[in-house]
Design a protein around this nucleic acid. Structure first.
Length: 298
DNA sequence: TCACGTCAAGCAGAT
DNA sequence: ATCTGCTTGACGTGA
């Protein structure tokens, strides 16, 4: 079991998600921004290594405007070596990496233009993970998408479009249950047809479910991950103590977390903590699982 | 130097 | 009709 956090490290004084306004776009500005982002990413990974955090989500903002028509800079060629170095570091330290395209990536959109730009965005994410030279356990996770008043048709549209995807994307793409539209049960139905692995988000499930208990859910979800996909990925958060659902907690609730770890003791998985204080909570979680057999076997 | 309106892009649900 | 949340945070203009 590896513990991870998404995109941003709050302890370090650098960010790997620097961007700028489209109206200020220039090749030079893009190059210097990417360079700063890659440098910071390296620092974050070093921090993670030093703190035994072996799971991390790379921000989609790593390359600003990567799928935008304005882009006129060959960033893949230009930063080839930097990506190779990152890859060597990640593989040497047996880290797991994921990426999560934003809310504008909607594979099942009824708007053809949105569908096309979503494909571009998926290729961008694939390019990053391919340049870093990671195996297919490095996943790109998306939600199923929009409902458009007809969930059945929208799920079928997702499946049909999934089948037509380039293998480069299919090898890495996974779906995650969301807090409003597509439940675990919906994702499992899609998996039956498309064999796409499912990231189970425990907190989303709490917000949006058909009554499945955690253990039952873990069993079903684990079966969707094949050998080449790596062990299952689980997303964990708990609800904010004051704000109403679906607000994520500001920091980890240690009692809730201990209970979760105990409940899932029969399963092995990598755990992404979607909690606002990022690595602070990840470090607390690590301490709790430091004597767990699933952690020790890594 | 700092505050605060705005940022490439979608969708659903609440106000 | 407009706002909010989603990975919400970072940019950048104006004072």
């Amino acid at each position: 079991m590896k513990i991870g956090y998404p995109c941003i490290n709050l302890t370090l004084d650098c960010r790997s998600n620097h961007t700028f306004r489209l109206k200020n776009y220039s090749k030079e500005r893009l190059e210097s921004t990417i360079e700063a982002n890659l440098n910071c990413l390296q620092k974050i990974l070093e921090f993670n290594k030093d703190n035994k955090i072996l799971f991390f989500r790379i921000t989609s903002d790593l390359i600003p405007f990567a799928s935008h028509p304005i882009l006129d800079f060959e960033w893949k060629k230009h930063f080839k070596t930097a990506f190779e170095d990152l890859g060597a570091f990640i593989r040497k330290n047996k880290m797991r990496i994921t990426m999560h395209p934003g809310q504008y990536t909607v594979l099942n959109s009824i708007n053809e233009k949105v569908y096309e730009s979503s494909l571009k965005e998926l290729f961008y994410h694939v390019d990053v993970l391919d340049l870093i030279n990671l195996d297919y356990s490095a996943k790109i996770q998306i939600h199923v998408g929009g409902v458009y008043g007809d969930k059945k048709a929208s799920m079928e549209r997702f499946i049909n479009r999934y089948f037509r995807l380039d293998n480069k994307i299919k090898n890495r793409l996974v779906i995650e249950n969301d807090d409003k539209n597509y439940t675990l049960s919906d994702c499992l139905k899609i998996n039956e047809k498309a064999s796409i692995p499912i990231i189970f988000d425990v907190y989303h499930h709490q917000c949006n479910n058909l009554g499945e208990q955690i253990k039952e859910a873990f069993k079903r979800v684990s079966d969707t991950w094949k050998e080449k996909d790596g062990i299952p990925i689980i997303h964990y958060s708990s609800e904010h103590p004051i704000k109403k659902r679906p607000s994520h907690a500001d920091t980890i609730d240690l009692i809730h977390f201990k209970n979760f770890i105990y409940l899932t003791r029969d399963f092995d998985f990598d755990l992404m903590l979607e909690i606002k204080d990022k690595e602070i909570s990840a470090l607390k979680a690590l301490e709790i699982i430091s004597n767990d057999a699933r952690f020790l076997q890594n």
